[in-house]
């Protein structure tokens, strides 16, 4: 067991996971399974975005689903109403979510903790209302049809499920790679310092606003990327993409997998998407299980699967040292008692 645990910490485990993802379409029983996996990957990209602002920076962003929907709508509307082809619209979707993320961030990130969460909850709802009511722009409840699929420059046809799966996988790998690099960099450490506390971070000479806005814009861009891929995959979107429940779903994926970790968002998202898929009856009532699960997780396992595993591994390694130290400190405590007496 210990050996297996150690193995999971090596780069080899990463490459095995990637290899599995690469051959998955061959292992899958049918195209539908590939489709499900591709959609899980799309959500995972968005969850990585949430992980930046909420996991690393410690700011609970409840508008994340809204930014996902903005990415999807930007691509959808540009391609269906304005005749843009996929890739320019795709870039526009990223620019749009980054730009709006910047604007929302400038206003909302001055707010602390609860105020920020409440504010973003309202921003998410405004996004939903606009998509639902602003019919001239968004078609209202009817939604957007005939969204362009990504074109493969004559090389591949992304309207087929399997090529699309690999496209999503490529973006996912990039998203995770960047997340890993970010988390180990000085910038990632800066975000974590902000999570530890605004005042402490400031007293370390960290410019709070600049770093929080950067984290927020990164997170909304991830959301926009996921949203745009989603629109290119399903080709038909509606205001429900901005439903607050999507944000809640993503929070659940993040918490189950491990908030603030690198592998957590992937494990949480893929795991839960497959569990809900295989237990179809769960689809409608999944929240009866997810709700209490969220509560139990924050009370007992606030660090999710990955975080708990890492903690366990760390203690396995430190055990001999730690025991020795505990005995040493017991000894000093004993001498203190003696000297006091």
């Amino acid at each position: 067991m210990f050996k297996f645990g150690s193995f999971l910490m090596t780069p080899m485990a990463k490459y095995l996971m990637l290899a599995f993802a690469l051959v998955f379409p061959l292992l899958a029983k049918n195209e539908y399974q590939v489709y499900v996996m591709a959609s899980a990957f799309v959500w995972a990209i968005a969850v990585y975005g949430l992980n930046i602002i909420t996991g690393f920076c410690g700011q609970l962003n409840l508008a994340h689903g809204g930014f996902f929907a903005i990415g999807a709508y930007t691509l959808g509307l540009l391609s269906s109403d304005y005749g843009w082809s996929f890739w320019p619209a795709f870039v526009a979707a990223l620019v749009m979510t980054a730009g709006l993320g910047f604007l929302v961030g400038v206003v909302s990130l001055r707010l602390k903790e609860h105020y920020f969460a409440i504010f973003t909850l309202c921003v998410g709802f405004i996004i939903y209302l606009l998509m639902d009511k602003w019919e001239e722009l968004t078609h209202g409840p009817i939604g957007v049809r005939d969204i362009a699929a990504p074109y493969g420059f004559g090389l591949v046809d992304f309207t087929n499920t399997v090529p699309f799966y690999y496209l999503v996988l490529a973006f996912l790998v990039f998203a995770i790679w960047f997340m890993g690099r970010l988390s180990r960099s000085l910038l990632g450490r800066t975000f974590i310092a902000i999570r530890n506390g605004d005042e402490l971070a400031e007293s370390l000479g960290i410019n709070l606003m600049r770093n929080k806005i950067l984290a927020f814009v990164l997170s909304t861009t991830y959301a926009g990327l996921a949203g745009a891929l989603y629109a290119g995959m399903v080709r038909f979107i509606g205001p429900e993409e901005a439903n607050i429940n999507h944000t809640f779903d993503m929070i659940t994926y993040l918490l189950v997998g491990g908030i603030g970790t690198i592998t957590g968002p992937l494990l949480g998202t893929v795991g839960i998407v497959w569990i809900t898929q295989s237990l179809q009856f769960l689809e409608e009532y999944r929240m009866i299980i997810f709700g209490p699960l969220l509560v139990l997780l924050v009370i007992f396992f606030p660090r999710g699967i990955t975080g708990s595993f890492l903690g366990w591994m760390h203690h396995k390694r430190q055990q001999p040292q730690a025991t020795a130290k505990r005995q040493a400190s017991k000894a000093t405590a004993a001498t203190e008692v003696e000297s006091n007496a």
């Binding site: 609970l60 609860h114 929240m287 709700g291 209490p292 924050v298 606030p302």
Partner: peptide
């Protein structure tokens, strides 16, 4: 954490 827990109750 308490915010996420509150969301859990709401969903349930």
């Amino acid at each position: 954490h308490d915010k996420i827990a509150a969301i859990g109750i709401l969903l349930f």
